[in-house]
């Protein structure tokens, strides 16, 4: 579907600026919430009925950007990953330059071994699997905390490595939960 380019004020602004927040990991969630509601009401399509189509489209694009920004900022993992993106590291990209950093061979070997352990824990029974799950989940949470610290220390590269590690741990959790 062809769409006109979004108005620069909405597309160029980063999501933190969009909600009047400083680009930091720690945010005021109440401020995010109330600003989201205010902006969402401002750009609601109902307000633009009968307006020129250009205005309607701009409002729609603004509303989409606000929704996307809210979805990203309210989620701690996505917020941390977004801060890396603002620093020029796109964790959704596999590009060696500017993409998600590659992990060490030792880490990948460990990940394979741990996933193999999921199979044996599953065979052992529900409590073994739950114990493994709790351990991995704790580790994933800890890794996110470390990434947040790195972001606070203005170390986006360190944060990106930790967030990639967390993604592997997340996939390990998905494996335990039987999701792909």
């Amino acid at each position: 579907m062809a769409v006109a380019s979004p108005s620069p004020s909405e597309s160029v602004a980063d999501h933190f600026a969009r909600f009047g927040l400083a680009p930091r990991y720690a945010i005021d969630r109440d401020a995010l919430e109330s600003e989201y509601l205010r902006r969402a009401a401002q750009t609601h399509p109902d307000r633009f009925v009968g307006r020129p189509s250009g205005e309607q489209r701009a409002a729609m694009e603004a509303a989409a950007a606000i929704n996307e920004g809210y979805r990203i900022l309210r989620d701690p993992v996505q917020r941390a990953e977004y801060l890396c993106k603002l620093a020029g590291i796109d964790l959704d990209s596999s590009d060696p330059r500017g993409g998600a950093p590659h992990m060490s061979q030792a880490f990948l070997v460990e990940m394979i071994e741990r996933r193999e352990k999921v199979e044996s824990a599953r065979a052992e029974g529900a409590s073994a699997l739950q114990a493994l799950r709790d351990q991995v989940e704790g580790e994933a949470d800890e890794t996110l905390d470390e990434a947040a610290d790195a972001l606070d220390d203005d170390d986006p590269n360190g944060a990106a490595r930790l967030l990639v590690k967390r993604r592997y741990l997340q996939r390990l959790l998905d494996e335990i939960d039987g999701e792909h």
């Binding site: 964790l91 959704d92 990209s93 596999s94 993409g99 998600a100 950093p101 590659h102 992990m103 061979q105 880490f107 990948l108 070997v109 990940m111 394979i112 996933r115 990639v164 993604r167 592997y168 741990l169 997340q170 996939r171 390990l172």
Partner: peptide, 13 residues
């Protein structure tokens, strides 16, 4: 050979 996809967390041996 053990490789991983950092963007999605997949691992392959």
């Amino acid at each position: 050979g053990i490789v991983g996809a950092p963007a999605c967390g997949d691992v392959m041996k």
